[in-house]
Amino acid sequence: MSRLLRVELDRFASRTLIRLGVVAVLVICCLGLVNAWQSASPPSQAELAQAQAYYEQALADWEVNGEQWVADCEAGEAAEKEASDTPDAVDYGCDSMEPRLENWTGSEPSFERDTAGLLTSLAVLFVMAPLLLAGSFVSAEFSTGAIGNWLTFAPQRVRVYLSKVLAAGIAIVPVAVVGVGVVLGGSWAAYRYFDVVDSGAVAGVSPPVDVAVRLVALAPVVAMVGAAVGFLVRHTAAVLGVVLGWLILVEVMLTNRIQGLQPWTMLLNITAWVEGGTSYSSQTCTTTASGQSCEVVTHVVSQTQGAIYLGVVTVIVAGVALLVFRRRDVA
C-alpha cells in the first residue's frame, strides 16, 4: 500500500496539468496580495483631499436637510415597529445619519480583519483547485486507459483506490500550505511595511491564522472528494461538469425553490467551516387582516455543523466511489 502511495504521489507531482494548476493557484494567491497591499496602504494626499471635499459637501447638505431626514427616518422606523411582531429588532439607524469623514476615507486598515476577509474570499480557490486537480489526476487514468495497464501490475482494487485517493489528499497539502502561507505572510509583511498597528482580535471575525489553518485542513478533504468523483465519472471534463452542475442546479436553483435545503448546501457548510460559523436568512410570510407580513429570520450554522457535514459528504462520496470501482469493469 505504501509503495503504491509513493508511486501515486510521484505521479501527482509529475503531471503537467497539476503543475500548471499549482502555478495558477500561487499566481492567484499573489494577486490577492495586491488587494492586501492596497488595504494596508494609507490613503494618498489626493484621496484625502477628495474625501474631505465629499465630506464637506455632504455636511452642507446635512445642515440644510438633516432635521427633515431624521424626522422621516424616525417616522418610517416607528411605522415598521408598529407592524412588526418584534419591534425591538427594528432599527433604521436614524441616530447615525450625520455624515462623518471616515465615510469617505474608508475604515482604518486592520491586518486581522482584512486578512481574514482576504483568505475567506480565496476559499473558493482552495476548494475548486484541489477538487479539479485531484479529479483530473484520477480521471485521466481512465480516459487514457492507463488504469487497465496499471491493474495488470497492481490488481488489488481497494489498495489501488486508497493509494490514489490518499495521494490526492496528501499531495495537495503542501500546495495549500504554500498558497495560504503566501497570502498570510505577504499580507502580514504589507501591514508591517505600512506600520499598521493592529488592535488585535476583531469581534465577529476569526483570526486570520485560524482561517488559514481551516483552509489548509479543507484542501485535502476536498481533494479526496475530487479523486473519488474522478473514479465515478472517469473523465476530467465530466468532473468539471459534475461540479458546475451541482453548483448551478442544487446550490442555486434547487435551494432557491426549496428554502429548507439551505442549511444543507455545500457552499454554506464550507463557509461555516472556513469562517468558524456563518448564518443564512429565510423569510417567513403570514397573511394578516392588513395584508401580507414577511419576516426575515437569521439562522446560525456552526463550524461544527460545517465540519460534520463535510465529513459525512466525504465518507459517502468516497465510499460509493470505492464500491463502484471494485465492481465496475475496466475498459
Binding site: R11, T16, A140, E141, T144, G145, A146, G148, N149, T152
Partner: peptide, 12 residues
C-alpha cells in the same frame, strides 16, 4: 505480463 489491445500509458 500482458498487453491488452493497444498499449496504454500516461501520454505526457
Amino acid at each position: 505480463g500482458a498487453i491488452v489491445e493497444q498499449p496504454k500509458f500516461f501520454p505526457s
